[in-house]
């Protein structure tokens, strides 16, 4: 098309690519200045940033972030520690057993974590354990299912050719099975980590006395609008950072895969 000839230089077009974000932030900054309801309900970015700074200085922000991340990591690690070996066993060694338990596992995986949360509270009290149990529950299913699929999906020819070269059981596992199943495993870990953070916020809103989810909910109840916006921003940014980290990690670890955009 003839218009192709007039594409702006790289650096400028890069700014243009982001211009919708800039416009959005500008609108957000200006809207509350219009007064009325907007002023009551919306804190502009400048105020939000100041609130964030204050929260940071008082150490409050750091505490809540550490607590939330600690819960997420504890639940996620626990889930991975159980789901990975279990996935390898079910997907690799006990195929018939896997067929029998899969419907049960699938159903359990469908159980809405929120409906279990009150149960966890009843069982473990409003302690850290109830939140960690919730994250554990959320993470274990994607990791388990994707590991099983990954292990089952290994090309038998790979195993066969490694065997024919006289590979023992342990090297076979580390040199063939683990790398071959890694895309599936990684998908599971990624899904798990993504939902873990997502669910944690909800869990903290429902039953907690600290953490980022609590911070948001508490700010809403006490009508501390700048704090509410600040906490929402922190959660969103943390979620995006987590997402970016996972994508980078996947690229590093699984660079050998065909890069298809739908992964």
């Amino acid at each position: 098309m003839p218009t192709r000839a007039f594409v702006s230089p790289w650096s400028l077009s890069r700014w243009l690519d982001r211009s919708s974000l800039l416009l959005f932030f500008a609108a957000w900054e200006l809207a509350p200045r219009a007064g009325g309801l907007l002023e009551t309900f919306i804190a502009p970015p400048s105020v939000v940033l100041m609130t964030l700074w204050e929260l940071l200085l008082s150490g409050e922000l750091c505490d809540h972030v550490t607590i939330s991340l600690g819960r997420a990591i504890a639940g996620f690690t626990g889930a991975a520690l159980i789901a990975l070996p279990l996935g390898f066993l079910l997907g690799g060694n006990f195929r018939t057993f896997e067929r029998i338990v899969t419907p049960v596992l699938r159903f359990l995986g469908q159980v809405n974590p929120f409906s279990l949360f009150p149960l966890f509270i009843i069982l473990f009290g409003i302690s850290e354990l109830s939140k960690e149990a919730m994250i554990f529950w959320v993470c274990i299913w994607p990791i388990l299912f994707n590991t099983i699929t990954g292990v089952k999906g290994i090309d038998p020819l790979l195993v066969k050719s490694a065997r024919s070269m006289g590979t023992g059981v342990v090297p076979l596992f580390f040199k063939v099975i683990l790398p071959a199943a890694s895309p599936g495993i990684f998908t599971g870990l990624k899904m798990g980590a993504g939902t873990a953070f997502f669910m944690l916020i909800a869990a903290e809103m429902i039953g907690a006395s600290c953490g980022l989810g609590w911070l948001v909910w508490n700010a809403q109840i006490n009508f501390q609008i700048p704090k509410l916006f600040a906490a929402t921003v922190v959660i969103s940014v943390l979620g995006m950072i987590l997402n970016m980290l996972l994508v980078t990690l996947e690229r590093r670890l699984l660079g050998w895969l065909d890069s298809s955009p739908n992964h």
Partner: peptide, 11 residues
């Protein structure tokens, strides 16, 4: 046709 290999190169 007017071709460009990169965005900066003249057509």
């Amino acid at each position: 046709f007017h071709l460009k290999k990169t965005r900066t190169e003249p057509a």
